[in-house]
């Protein structure tokens, strides 16, 4: 067991900003914080179990068909999470739309299976999955938070009791920068954030 496997996914090998994987859902669902959290939960479940199952089976899966085998495992897990969300979180299910089944082709999951779980122990793979999921969750939530606060002036969480789940940001609620919430805003924001992370990485090298 190596605690480094857990922490590397958060900053050093952050899946979104450093390795740049899994962009479709990152930009597609980051219009609201609640969607970002729902998506992160889905990715967390699928990544954790796919890493565990694949590393447990790593000595049994023949090399020549390892990719199709991984895809079947991942797609089954995605089907489980799809049915689960449809039953217990219909609002999130509707908001995520086509991006939920697309977790199957999310490069983070197949990438970790191929690069890590296929050659490491079950516990290390589970830690790797948890670390990567935390990194993915933080990045996705950060993008969603910036886009929702600037683009709509709200922060949408989940309704609990009398709290309807929507926080309003004063001033911005009346004067939102709409473009940030729309498609171009996502791409521009991703460009600026990536530039920031590259700049930080470069400064460390110097």
């Amino acid at each position: 067991m190596n605690i480094k496997e857990l922490t590397k996914g958060i900053f050093k090998e952050n899946p979104v900003f450093i390795i740049v994987l899994g962009l479709c859902p990152t930009l597609g669902v980051s219009t609201q914080v609640s969607n970002a959290i729902g998506m992160s939960a889905g990715v967390f479940f699928v990544l954790l179990f796919s890493n565990i199952i694949i590393s447990a089976l790593r000595n049994f899966i023949p090399d020549s068909i390892h990719i199709p085998a991984y895809i079947v495992i991942i797609a089954s897990l995605v089907t489980i999470i799809e049915l689960f969300m449809h039953a217990f979180a219909p609002a999130v299910y509707a908001a995520l739309g086509v991006y939920l089944p697309l977790i199957v082709v999310n490069c983070i999951i197949l990438g970790r299976a191929e690069a890590f779980a296929s050659s490491n122990t079950v516990i290390d793979s589970a830690l790797d999955a948890i670390g990567m999921s935390i990194g993915f969750t933080l990045s996705l939530t950060l993008i969603a938070l910036i886009r929702e606060v600037l683009g709509a002036g709200t922060i949408t969480l989940f309704p609990i009791g009398s709290f309807d789940g929507v926080l309003e940001v004063p001033w911005l609620i009346d004067n939102p920068f709409r473009v940030v919430a729309l498609a171009p805003g996502a791409l521009l924001l991703m460009g600026f954030l990536k530039a920031f992370f590259d700049w930080k990485a470069m400064r460390k090298v110097d």
Partner: peptide, 21 residues
């Protein structure tokens, strides 16, 4: 330097998306 490669590609894509709106 910090924008070279991917960041500037994202920003160009963003500007293209703006045009596509």
């Amino acid at each position: 330097k910090a924008y070279r490669g991917m960041p500037i590609a994202f920003i160009s894509a963003g500007l293209m998306a703006l045009a596509f709106m």
